[in-house]
Design a protein around this nucleic acid. Structure first.
Lengths: 208, 208
DNA sequence: CAAAAAGATTGAATGAATTCAATTTTTAAG
DNA sequence: CTTAAAAATTGAATTCATTCAATCTTTTTG
C-alpha cells in the first residue's frame, strides 16, 4: 500500500494537470497564468514547479495524454485495416485528425508542438517526441501489414514509405493548426491528394 | 531621394537586426535580452518594439533572410538539374541542408520554427511561412521540369509528389535541429533512404 | 520662417514566469 | 515514542519581455 505522501503527490499532480488543461482550453495558453492554475489546483505557485519544469511543460503533458488516446484508436485500425493502401491510410489518418480536436484547441496544439521543438529536452517534450515516433511506427506497420497481405508490392521499403506518409500528415497538421480558417475536411482532402501518387504506385496491381 | 527619417529608419533596422543575430548566435536566444540587443544597436528598448512585434519576431526575421538565400541557391539547381529524380533531389536537398547551418545555429532554427508555429500571425512568421511555401514550390517545380524532360513518368501529380518530398525534408530538418547530436550527413542519409521508394517509382524506366 | 502635425524615441512601470530560502510535513531510524 | 532526515510546500523576490505616457525630432503647412 503506497504511503500518504505518494497518494497526495498523485492527487496534486492530477489536480494541477486538470486545472491547467481546463484553463488552457477556456482562456488560451497565453492568458492562463501559473497563479490561476495553482489557485484552481489548490496548491502554491512554487508547488507547480515541483511537478512541471515550466508552463510549456504542462501543456505538452496534457497534449501527450491526447496523443496516447490517438495511438490507442489507431491500433484498432492497424489490427484490422481496409484492403487497399489508399483506403487504409484514409481511415487511419482520418481517425488521427478527427480525434485531435475533440479535447484540444488548435491553439493548444500549435503551442505544444512549438514547445516540443523549442525545448526538446524538457520532460514532456521528450515524451511527446517519443509518442510521435510511435505514431510514425504505426503508419509503417500498417503498410508492412498490407504488404504481407499482398496489397503492397514486395520489395517496397515499408519503413521509408511509412515515414513519408507520417511526416507529410504531421507537417500538414502543423499547417492546419496554424490556420484557424482551415477545416478538417479541407485538411483531409489535401492529404488524400498528396498521398495518392505514392499510395497508388506501391499498391499491388491486382488490388487496384 | 529619400528623406532623413527614412534613411535613419533603415539604418536603425539594419543595426537592430544585426545586433540581434550576432547576440542570438553568441549567447543563444534565451540568454539574449532585449536590453542587450538595444544597447548594441544604440537604440532604446522601446524603439526595438517600434521595429519588431516582439523578441521572437526578430529571430524569425533573421532566419527568413537565411531562407531567402537558400531559395536563391536552390533556384540555380532547379534551372539546371541532374538527370535522375534521385540525384536531382539529393543535390537540391543537400544544398538546402548545407546552407542552413552556415550562419545559424540549431537552436536558432528550432526556436524560429517553433515561433512561426506558435505565433503564425506575427509579421515575420507570415514571411517565414510564405518562404516555406516557395521552397515547397521549388521542389515541385524540380519534379515537373524532370517530367517535361522525360525523367518522370507522365500522369504523375508533380505538385503532390513535390509536396511529399518537401514536407518530409522539412519534418526531418525539425528532427535534426531538435537533436544536437545528429550530424548533417546522418540527416542526408535518412532522407535519401526515405525518398528512394517514391523517387524510384515515379522515374521513367528508361532513365533508371 | 514659424507653427502645427506627424512620426519616432525613450526608459520607467507593469505583468507574469520562474527562482529560492524558509518553513512544514512525512517518513525512517534508534 | 522521539529525533533526525528526507521530501515537499510555500509565497515573496527576482528577472526580463512588453507597454505606454512623456518627450523629442522631422516633415508639412501657411
Amino acid at each position: 500500500m503506497t504511503g500518504l505522501r505518494a497518494r497526495q503527490k498523485a492527487d496534486r499532480n492530477r489536480r494541477i494537470l486538470q486545472a491547467a488543461t481546463i484553463l488552457f482550453r477556456e482562456v488560451g495558453y497565453d492568458s492562463a497564468r501559473i497563479e490561476d492554475i495553482a489557485e484552481r489546483a489548490e496548491v502554491s505557485v512554487g508547488t507547480f514547479y515541483n511537478y512541471y519544469q515550466n508552463k510549456g511543460d504542462i501543456l505538452v503533458a496534457a497534449v501527450s495524454m491526447e496523443v496516447e488516446e490517438v495511438l490507442a484508436a489507431g491500433k484498432a485500425i492497424v489490427d484490422s485495416p481496409p484492403e487497399t493502401v489508399g483506403e487504409a491510410l484514409k481511415v487511419l489518418i482520418g481517425q488521427y485528425y478527427d480525434h485531435s480536436l475533440v479535447y484540444l484547441s488548435k491553439e493548444m496544439w500549435r503551442t505544444a508542438m512549438a514547445i516540443s521543438i523549442q525545448q526538446p529536452e524538457s520532460p514532456f517534450s521528450r515524451r511527446y517526441t517519443e509518442l510521435d515516433g510511435r505514431l510514425c511506427d504505426q503508419v509503417s506497420t500498417l503498410i508492412a501489414k498490407l504488404q504481407r497481405r499482398g496489397g503492397v508490392m514486395p520489395g517496397i521499403d515499408t519503413a521509408a514509405t511509412g515515414q513519408m506518409f507520417f511526416n507529410n500528415l504531421n507537417m500538414m497538421f502543423i499547417e492546419f493548426v496554424k490556420d484557424e480558417a482551415m477545416t478538417l475536411d479541407a485538411l483531409k482532402d489535401i492529404v488524400s491528394r498528396q498521398n495518392r501518387p505514392l499510395a497508388t504506385l506501391i499498391s499491388s496491381p491486382k488490388l487496384q
